[in-house]
């Protein structure tokens, strides 16, 4: 029963992440929605799958390893894209920008 609840939570989080990518105003806030909701939703769904299957222990371990790799890789790519977008010349719509003070 608990795996279906985890699945529903993950799907709802994924849908809100997609809505956030569509609605937020600039790249950095879109990256917020993409990274957090994608990582959380994918990890929750993979955890639900690991609870659902029962052929052997290694399949569960592989799914957990996939979740761990997603949690490791997704934020890293998001930092790289954020820094690249800043260097590409996109000005963030912010109230205070300490990065522009230090790197004129």
């Amino acid at each position: 029963m608990i795996e279906y609840m985890l699945l529903a939570f993950g799907e709802v989080v994924m849908v809100f992440g997609a809505l956030g990518i569509l609605r937020f105003p600039d790249v950095y806030t879109r990256l917020h929605a993409a990274t957090k909701c994608d990582t959380g939703g994918a990890m929750t769904i993979l955890l639900a799958l690991a609870l659902y299957t029962d052929p052997s222990v290694f399949i569960k371990l592989k799914l957990l390893l996939l979740a761990f790799l997603i949690a490791l890789i997704n934020p890293m790519v998001s930092h790289a894209i954020a820094k690249g977008a800043y260097k590409y010349g996109i000005k963030p719509k912010v109230v205070v920008d300490m990065y522009a003070w230090d790197n004129p």
Partner: peptide
């Protein structure tokens, strides 16, 4: 922390009460 951040992003998507900034 991850569950809290997911719920917070959902709240921000619905209400759009954002006030972003870059802090050191």
């Amino acid at each position: 922390r991850l569950i809290e951040s997911n719920i917070k992003v959902a709240k921000n998507v619905i209400l759009m009460d954002i006030n972003p900034g870059i802090i050191k």
